[in-house]
Design a protein around this nucleic acid. Structure first.
Lengths: 174, 174
DNA sequence: TGAGTCATGTAACCTGTTACATGATTTG
DNA sequence: CAAATCATGTAACAGGTTACATGACTCA
């Protein structure tokens, strides 16, 4: 989640409270964050020097505005260009897509390539699984169970193909 | 994850080791489990009396085979029929689809209805979000950012529509 | 016999959720 | 003035990941 925080703070510096709103207003599509997890992640970013406190509003509510440091900006862009290591390919893909506008236009295709690479790998894994499953024989009393287990796999295949197709053709490109 | 364990043990009694294999061979499509989390979840089910140790192989490797109790069976079926409260609609949907063969044929439509209900709710939420976003004005320097944020929302809408359509029409029905 | 698999268990660590406490500011 | 919102912080809890320790069995 720290990379998402960096991305949001790169849009403009904001407070932790603002970050929660920003999550709700868009990031929640692919990433859920509660006040508690956000606090801890933000503290971690501060400790590692990837963000810093830009200002503390005095006399008012003590609002702290956070800003991304140069190191933080580097970390964010390294992450954008990196392999999708997130446990869910979709989460990794949408997180990068959401911030793709922060990347130089010339580098965007490389990010998209990382996304389709991961989606393709996952799809290949599912296709291998399906090939295995199709061979397996099923005892009569579990025929029903097997039907729906195969349907689940069919859904997985279909949704991965959908995602891959969307990222290959449905994306705004200049 | 405990409901998934109950579902797997309802197929046939098995050991913790077997459960790990079963997760890898199918459940991992929608649910990731490591040895550690599985152990804790299984211990919890034992404590709550939803599973019991059927046998401990003596003289051999001390293999413990777990079996679902009557209480566990009830808990499983209650969960199958319940609203999808999982944080990801897709996870909740696929978990139930995977075990749909364990439900009486007459009750399957009710489970599917719960799934499409949740997917529909999530889609409506995204449509409302899109309506909001379309009105918002965007400062010139963030036009690019907004383009991809909107693309992310468009993906969310498209994938939810895909899922809803799949569960409405793509499902094996007698 | 040695490698790989079967099979159990422990524990630290990370991160997300929930619930609460506190108080300032804004707004009807 | 009261309620809602802004804004911070603390801490217990839950569940997943990783790494390790231990030992039996199987098979080439």
């Amino acid at each position: 989640m720290s990379h998402v925080i960096l991305g949001l703070l790169l849009l403009w510096p904001m407070s932790r409270y603002d970050l929660i709103r920003a999550f709700e207003a868009g990031v929640s599509l692919f990433y859920s964050a509660s006040s508690g997890s956000l606090k801890r992640a933000l503290d971690g970013l501060l400790e590692r020097g990837l963000v810093e406190v830009e200002s503390v509003e005095q006399g008012s509510r003590g609002r702290k505005v956070y800003r991304v440091t140069d190191a933080g900006r580097s970390a964010f862009h390294a992450w954008m260009r990196s392999e999708l290591t997130e446990s869910s390919a979709e989460t990794g893909a949408l997180a990068r897509l959401y911030f793709l506008g922060l990347v130089e236009p010339a580098d965007r295709e490389a990010v998209i390539a990382r996304i389709t690479e991961r989606l393709g790998d996952d799809l290949a894994r599912l296709e291998a699984l399906q090939a295995e499953v199709q061979q397996a024989s099923v005892p009569t009393e579990l025929a029903d169970v097997a039907t729906y287990q195969r349907a689940t796999l069919a859904y997985g295949l279909a949704s991965h193909r959908f995602a891959l197709d969307w990222f290959r053709t449905g994306l705004p490109r200049d």
